[in-house]
């Protein structure tokens, strides 16, 4: 297993504020890797550094083993890194097909080839019937799909998804998850920032947790979600201990209830000493 993307000790400061503090993570080729963390943890900032929209204050970003830290965003896109925006950025004056075609033109010089590619990608993400519509008229769910389609049309090897599920209702999320899985199956590695935990749990192979700019945990989603440090980052100091105590209390309640049921079954009065 080789790392397609390797972020090494990246720090991003905005004046006196350190948004990302010495963060390191690896994205294994062919994986769906999650980046989670509470609001304001610096996830999107780390994303923009990886995509080249902000320069890192320190640290390096390696893509396929090459140092890309100093490259501008459009060169990284040519190199095979595509991103979506958390706040969708459609070309509102253009049709859905034309929007996707801008991405497709990156690999196709001829108009008909770019438009064909745009149609194919549009169908892949479920925008087939809406290709001729103006992008400005799409619903939120449609715009999220369009973000995905445009990025996908650049034929990336690494796809950075910034909260593509945020703002969708549960049934829209259910529709979107297979789309993301199908993209991975087609050989594209995905790094995903997401708040919808149900999606993170079922989609990601590995999850990195960012809190206050630092990576505090990494591993399979099941393990990470039980990590006390992660629970504290989300729910506040002492939360892990409280939850553990609650778990113990609940277990105690269950045990007592079980005892009660058993003693009743034996026809003894509650609270009477065991025979």
């Amino acid at each position: 297993m080789s790392a397609l993307l390797s972020v090494q000790g990246v720090t991003k400061r905005f004046g006196g504020l350190t948004a990302v503090d010495n963060a390191s993570l690896d994205v294994v080729k062919g994986s769906i890797t999650g980046l989670i963390g509470p609001n304001g943890a610096g996830k999107t900032t780390l994303f923009t550094v990886i995509a080249g929209f902000e320069a890192a204050s320190a640290g390096t970003v390696l893509f396929e083993g090459r140092d890309i830290t100093g490259l501008p965003a459009h060169v990284r896109a040519v190199g095979g890194i595509a991103r979506t925006f958390q706040i969708v950025q459609p070309f509102a004056g253009l049709s859905v097909r034309e929007n996707i075609a801008v991405g497709a033109f990156l690999r196709h010089k001829a108009r008909h080839a770019a438009l064909e590619q745009a149609d194919a990608v549009g169908h892949q993400v479920g925008l087939g019937p809406l290709l001729d519509q103006s992008a400005g008229q799409l619903t939120v769910a449609g715009r999220k799909r369009l973000e995905l389609a445009r990025a996908l049309a650049t034929a990336p090897r690494l796809l950075l998804l910034d909260e593509v599920l945020a703002g969708l209702n549960p049934s829209e999320i259910r529709d979107m998850m297979p789309v993301v899985q199908a993209i991975r199956s087609s050989g594209v590695t995905i790094l995903i920032v997401e708040h919808v935990m149900q999606a993170v749990m079922s989609l990601c192979d590995t999850v990195h947790v960012l809190a206050q700019g630092r990576i505090i945990a990494a591993g399979p989603p099941g393990t990470v979600s039980r990590d006390p440090a992660v629970i504290e980052a989300y729910l506040g100091h002492g939360a892990a201990a409280r939850m553990q105590a609650q778990d113990v209390r609940q277990a105690e309640d269950v045990r007592q209830a079980e005892d009660l049921r058993q003693s009743q079954a034996r026809g003894q009065a509650p609270g009477a000493p065991h025979a």
């Binding site: 929209f53 070309f91 991405g103 033109f105």
Partner: peptide, 20 residues
């Protein structure tokens, strides 16, 4: 296509590999 993309949204165009 790239020119119109820059007009509509320069950030998004750059993300799609357009040298604005």
């Amino acid at each position: 296509a790239q020119l119109v993309a820059v007009r509509e949204n320069e950030e998004a165009a750059r993300a799609l590999g357009v040298d604005a």
